[in-house]
C-alpha cells in the first residue's frame, strides 16, 4: 500500500525520537513552570474550530500542540473537533472560535452576509482536493466525460458544480445531478457514475473495496481555489494580532514537521486526537500521502508553507466570482505571513 514503506528500524528510530522530544518538552514545561516566569507576555488562549472530526487532515496542528510549537509562541490552542453540521464561519461570528478553517468561496459567501468581517490569513491546502471520482471501468477523466451520466453532488457543493460545468461548457441538460452524502456507496453501487469527493479521502475507500478509482481534480479544469484556509474576524485580528501570529507560527512548525515526515502526525491522529474514531494507521498514512502534493507546491517551496501568493489570490478571486459570489483582494490578508517569514522560505 504505502508508496514509501518505512523500514521498521527507521520507524522505531522516529518513534524513539518523538518520545524523546516529547519528554524534553515536558521537562522544559515543568522546569519553566516551577521557576517564576521571567518573560513579560502572558499566554493567550485561542479556540481553533476545525471543520471535521479528528483526521490527519489536521495532523500539523496536532504536532504543533504536542511538540509545544504553540506554547513556544505563547498561545494555548483548544483544537475543537468539527463535523458535517459544524459552521465554522458562524462560530467565528458568534465569538465561539477565534480561528476556523474553511474554503475561500464559503468565506466569501459568509462575508456577503456578515458585511465583510471575515478575513483569510493563511492557506493550509494550496490546491483544493475537491474532485469528481468515478470508477476506472467507466471513468470521468475530463469534464466532457460527464455528458450523459448521473453525477452525485453533495448539497453543499451544488454551487461549485454549477460553476464548474458552466466553466467547462457543459450544460445542465447534458448530465443529471442528484444529491449524495460523503460516502461513496452511490458510485460503488452504480447509482451514480461519479460523485464529488475529496481526492485525499474517499478514493481510499474505493481502493479498499478492491476497485480502482479515477479522480478528476476540479483544480485541473479551471477551478483554482485554496482549501482549508485559516479564517479570523477583523476584530480578532486587531485585538489579538500577536496571538494569531503565534498560532500561525505554531501551525507552520507543525506542518513543516508533517512535510518532513508525516509519521508522527499520523500516529498522533490515530492514537491520540482521533483515538475514539476507529481510524487506522494504514488509511491515515495513505491520506497523509495524498495530501502532500496540495500542501507542498512550488509556491510553498519558494515562500514557505501556508503562503498565499499574489497570483494564487487572483486565481482564487476569479474562481469565487465564477461561482457568482462577489469578492476582492480584501478577503485575503498576507501581512501576518510576511511578518512571520521575513522573506525566508521556512521557519526555524
Amino acid at each position: 500500500m504505502p508508496r514509501l514503506p518505512l523500514r521498521t528500524a527507521a520507524r522505531t528510530a522516529i518513534a524513539v525520537a518523538a518520545v524523546a522530544t516529547l519528554g524534553a518538552t515536558l521537562a522544559a514545561c515543568s522546569s519553566s513552570s516551577s521557576t517564576p516566569a521571567s518573560t513579560t507576555a502572558a499566554v493567550t488562549t485561542l479556540n481553533y474550530q476545525t471543520s471535521w472530526i479528528p483526521l490527519v487532515q489536521f495532523g500539523g496542528s496536532y504536532v504543533a500542540e504536542k511538540e509545544g510549537y504553540y506554547a513556544a509562541n505563547k498561545v494555548k490552542v483548544n483544537i475543537l473537533p468539527g463535523g458535517p453540521d459544524v459552521d465554522g464561519m458562524a462560530a467565528l461570528e458568534a465569538g465561539k472560535a477565534d480561528i476556523a478553517v474553511s474554503n475561500p468561496d464559503v468565506v466569501a459567501r459568509a462575508n456577503a452576509q456578515a458585511g465583510g468581517n471575515l478575513v483569510i490569513v493563511a492557506a493550509g491546502f494550496q490546491k483544493s482536493p475537491l474532485a469528481i471520482m468515478s470508477l476506472s471501468t467507466n471513468p470521468i477523466n475530463t469534464p466532457a466525460d460527464m455528458k450523459g451520466k448521473k453525477i452525485g453532488v453533495p448539497t453543499g457543493d451544488a454551487a461549485t458544480n454549477d460553476a464548474f460545468t458552466k466553466l467547462n461548457g457543459i450544460s445542465s441538460s447534458d448530465y443529471t445531478s442528484v444529491p449524495v452524502s460523503f460516502d461513496v456507496a452511490p458510485t460503488l453501487s452504480g447509482d451514480v457514475a461519479g460523485q464529488y469527493v475529496f481526492a485525499t479521502e474517499q478514493p481510499i475507500a474505493v481502493e479498499a473495496a478492491g476497485k480502482t478509482p479515477t479522480t478528476m481534480l476540479l483544480a485541473d479544469h479551471g477551478m483554482n481555489e485554496y482549501a482549508q484556509v485559516y479564517v479570523v474576524t477583523k476584530d480578532t485580528l486587531a485585538k489579538k494580532r500577536a496571538a494569531i501570529e503565534g498560532f500561525l507560527k505554531g501551525e507552520i512548525k507543525g506542518w513543516q514537521n508533517y512535510v518532513a515526515d508525516p509519521t508522527e502526525a499520523v500516529a498522533l491522529t490515530v492514537n491520540d486526537y482521533g483515538k475514539s474514531g476507529g481510524l487506522t494507521i494504514k488509511e491515515q498514512t495513505r491520506q497523509a500521502q495524498l495530501q502532500m502534493p496540495i500542501i507542498v507546491t512550488d509556491t510553498t517551496k519558494a515562500h514557505g508553507l501556508l503562503w498565499m501568493s499574489a497570483e494564487d489570490i487572483d486565481a482564487n478571486i476569479a474562481t469565487i466570482k465564477a461561482l457568482g459570489v462577489t469578492a476582492d483582494k480584501s478577503l485575503f490578508d498576507t501581512s501576518l505571513l510576511e511578518d512571520i517569514y521575513q522573506g525566508a522560505s521556512s521557519l526555524k
Binding site: G83, D85, A208, G277, G278
Partner: peptide, 27 residues
Amino acid sequence: VFGEFIGSETGLGVLLINGLQMLNLGR
C-alpha cells in the same frame, strides 16, 4: 448520534462518520 455531527471526538456518530467516509461497512 446526530448531536455528534456538530463536532465530537468520541461516540457512535464519530465512528459512523469515519465508517461512512472509509466505507467500512462492518463499522
